[in-house]
């Protein structure tokens, strides 16, 4: 794991809100603050009293056994669900009452556990959808093919290829998204999310279905993305190599509750975490 030096480079320090953020973020407002976040589904508390702070350029991990409520946390952060308790602050702004579109415009973008690409569209068109709010021309310029249409379309095309080049996918621009191999679909989802210019990128099991080689590459690329765009990344992942390798702060969820928070080393030694995972393994 020597190539992922970032982990040891970054010193994690506590801030007044009791969260642990990378030292370099210490005087900046955190990109995300979740406060007492909770949601119930017909009596079942899928997420309960979830508190988390993520620094501006932190790579954070959210782990936990199956059904722990990880994806539900993402759905709460992106406002797919409205929380029954608590709220989320994005770049210091309260997102209470916002919808998914507004949350995205405020700077949060995500990928999905069960891939949600526009599978009948080409790779480039998928990225262009991500660039939707970056490109400004209206319906009439589009229909009448006014100069704004041509200049903005050209810009969009260039930006799309530029973003695809992160994963070396430019040559696939005209391929139907649905016909891509699984790993490439996951990478395309990341590119599409990045196209919305987020300040926080949420990745839901980005390495699922990837082979070890692809996962290695993905780890490098996540760090590359963070460094290039200076954004925070939060990822859900079952691949512990990936999580322990690149996450500067890790949050462990079990039955909807946070059972541990800390750096990779702290988490690995935490008896509560070990119990949660071993207990799970015994069942399986």
């Amino acid at each position: 794991m020597t190539q992922y030096k970032h982990k040891s480079d970054t010193k994690m320090v506590p801030v007044p809100s009791m969260a642990i953020v990378p030292e370099r973020d210490i005087d900046k407002a955190p990109v995300l603050e979740a406060r007492h976040l909770g949601i119930e589904f017909g009596g079942l508390k899928a997420v309960d009293d979830f508190n988390l702070t993520i620094g501006k350029t932190e790579i954070a991990g959210l782990i936990g056994p199956n059904g722990a409520g990880k994806t539900t946390v993402f759905n709460l952060l992106t406002k797919v669900y409205q929380p029954t308790t608590g709220t989320v602050l994005l770049n210091g702004k309260d997102t209470a009452g916002m919808n998914t579109v507004q949350a995205n415009k405020l700077g949060i973008a995500r990928t999905f556990q069960n891939i949600r690409l526009f599978s009948n569209m080409t790779v480039e068109e998928n990225v262009r959808i991500g660039l939707h709010n970056q490109v400004k021309y209206g319906m009439f310029s589009g229909i009448l093919r006014l100069p704004a249409y041509w200049s903005q379309e050209k810009k969009q095309h260039e930006q799309a290829l530029d973003l695809l080049s992160i994963f070396d996918m430019q040559h696939m621009a005209d391929v139907k998204a649905g016909s891509l191999p699984y790993g490439a679909q996951r990478r395309l989802e990341i590119v599409r999310a990045l196209a919305t210019h987020p300040s926080l990128l949420l990745l839901d099991e980005p390495a699922a279905g990837m082979n070890p080689h692809e996962t290695e590459e993905l780890m490098e690329n996540i760090i590359k993305i963070r460094d290039k765009f200076q954004i925070a990344v939060m990822l859900i992942e079952h691949d512990m190599n990936l999580v322990m390798g690149i996450c500067e702060g890790i949050c462990v969820l079990n039955y909807g509750r946070v059972i541990a928070k800390g750096t990779a080393d702290e988490i690995q030694q935490n008896p509560v975490v070990i119990e949660a995972y071993l207990g799970k393994q015994k069942e399986g």
Binding site: T100, N104, F118, V135, S141, R192, A193
Partner: peptide
């Protein structure tokens, strides 16, 4: 055009389109 692609994106996957 941009608008048309948005319309088709909503048709293909509403939740993904919203989160974009």
């Amino acid at each position: 055009s941009r608008s048309g692609r948005a319309i088709m994106a909503i048709r293909d996957n509403r939740i993904a389109a919203e989160s974009m």
